[in-house]
Design a protein around this nucleic acid. Structure first.
Lengths: 337, 337
DNA sequence: GCGCTCCGCCAAAACGCTTTGGCACCATGC
DNA sequence: GCATGGTGCCAAAGCGTTTTGGCGGAGCGC
């Protein structure tokens, strides 16, 4: 029912070959003919049938996206970090003529049904079945965050400079007058967490301070984070500030501090990584590092499409800048040390 | 590179016609041959090429999803309501062999590039270009929430019984001892909001109480909601309870109440619709009505696929039950009236 | 033994596009 | 006048399926 290439050819009085060439800028077509074809196509409202094109080019114009670490039924995790990243990725994909298909973690079986030209894995651990599958079919894989222990497993990555971000957060706390910041992070093997741990250890080492690290073993959610924070606060000496690598963890930390009868920022300062609305709306508003998830998504898809289309991609490792946004939660201790 | 139907035919010593028939249960194939073909396909890891199939069947195995009322760049809104709905929809789509493609509001142009067999519109106003486009191509449209003023614009809908939910919320507040509940809702023409307004008006009318309605004109976010709530609280007589039709609105209401120097639930009770983690984590935790977004998504996709595949769909209007979850925010006034 | 129906299978067409190879024409250089 | 090269266009092959129409053989009733 929709017009096909033959209709356009007829309307422009040329062959279908010429239509295809004119529309795709491929063969040799005179400028005059090209204009005539474009006009005819436009008038008829012609768009090339995706399947016919895909059949002959072997390209699906589809990218698989997997957000690692959630269940079989979770395609879009609730955290604003992921929705923003997805929005950026989706927008870029649409711009480039691609479509994104979300694949839940641990759902490799269904993958065969939907061919993708490449894959984007968010927060990889390296154990994702999707990555194997794509490699096997020769399709490129890009990650946001690096694959811990083996960067070569992906064909490129986009990441923040997490060591620098951690350093900035710790320096911020120090300048505001806090003297014993703890690190609160996840036990999952994620590059951002490992980066933060390393940067924290170095920072503490340089100052001859004993590191205080809280590790969230289970689900990376507010409840677990609160529990871990509570145990940190029971230490002797207790930390007077918390740097968390994740938004939910920062919220959990806040809850635990208040539950312990302490005040933020008077008794304990808090800085979180991954700025989201929930941190802004918290009481008090939480200082956070904006890691620009939307831009991570955009860049990752841009890189991935470049690899898919066989461009000679110059930068396969893209670093996205971060920005510390000071809010009340790190205003400084009530009684400076 | 991946095996095609010819490879399977060769391996099973039959024609490609027979392979197709055996795999799709279409023509006449003896049980023995069918088994042989299935085994061969399995061993080779054969899956029919999506494009070739789509080309001949004219089916894309793709459904368009649009969440109405957000910008061009927003594919997945941050609210947990939408992510949960999407997760349900995605899971069901995958089960049925379909793929979901998100279309941002106001992006009709890009639509032609990606053919879809049907569309799901979340929270329709009736002015979505996507709906026109799908109708024009003869593809079915299903909505979650009804199209206000013209239900016929969609081929089916899935919705909660919002009038009943509103009634339940108001009764809950009354039983807990609140006597003058206000309604806080959006000015956008959405069926759930209109339902709530009507139910609220009836409930107030039956009790001879003057209705108090706060309408959020701008963005449906926490800040706007707080502002509207603040003005509600300045009324004379002021409401002693708030029923909001949306999770962000409930959070905004809470903030405004506390900013006004009043306590929740002592001075003002709050019940929100759309239960999300943010309401559970709020201080105090907010009573809310769980509207089962994941189930809405599942049912909507199920219905849509039924329509796409031309099944004789029995129920084109599906109502999903809701559940009120009492929390501290509606525990009852400090000084009962 | 003959005609009929049903069964199991297959050849070939069609879906709409891209791409290869080539043909006719014209201009250029010798 | 003849090879050479470039330009503008096209016919046809091919991508991997589904589906139509048909063909031989077996079983059945008479």
């Amino acid at each position: 029912m929709p017009p096909n290439i033959r209709d356009v050819a007829r309307a422009a009085s040329v062959s279908i070959t010429t239509v295809s060439h004119a529309l795709n800028g491929k063969g040799r077509v005179s400028e005059e003919t090209r204009q005539r074809v474009l006009r005819a196509a436009d008038e008829l409202g012609y768009t090339a049938n995706v399947h016919a094109r895909g059949l002959v080019t072997g390209r699906a114009l589809t990218l698989a996206v997997q957000i690692s670490g959630f269940g079989r039924q979770t395609f879009v995790p609730g955290s604003a970090y992921f929705t923003e990243l997805l929005n950026g990725a989706y927008a870029m994909a649409l711009d480039l003529g691609y479509v994104l298909v979300l694949i839940p973690s641990a759902a490799e079986a269904d993958l065969n049904r939907m061919p993708a030209d490449g894959a984007l894995v968010v927060d990889p651990t390296g154990h994702e079945a999707l990555m194997e599958l794509m490699r096997a079919s020769g399709a490129p894989v890009v990650t946001t965050g690096r694959v811990p222990s083996n960067e070569q497993l992906s064909d490129g990555w986009v990441d923040n400079d997490h060591p620098a971000a951690a350093h900035a957060a710790l320096e911020h706390l120090r300048q505001r007058g806090y003297v014993r910041p703890a690190l609160l992070t996840t036990a999952r093997e994620l590059s951002y967490s490992l980066d933060a741990q390393e940067a924290y250890a170095r920072w503490a080492g340089e100052r001859g301070q004993e590191p205080i690290v809280g590790t969230i073993e289970g689900e990376l959610d507010v409840d677990e984070a609160a529990e871990v924070t509570a145990s940190l606060l029971r230490r002797e000496p207790a930390p007077d500030a918390l740097y968390s690598t994740n938004d939910a963890a920062a919220l959990g930390a806040l809850r635990a501090v208040r539950a312990a009868g302490l005040s933020v920022p008077g008794d304990v300062g808090i800085v979180g990584e991954m700025d989201t609305e929930a941190l802004r709306l918290a009481d008090p508003p939480l200082t956070a590092i904006d890691v620009m998830p939307a831009q991570l998504g955009r860049e990752a898809v841009g890189l991935l499409v470049g690899l898919v289309e066989g461009d000679d991609v110059a930068r396969r490792r893209i670093v996205v800048e971060t920005e510390l946004i000071p809010r009340t939660s790190s205003a400084g201790p009530a009684t400076p040390a």
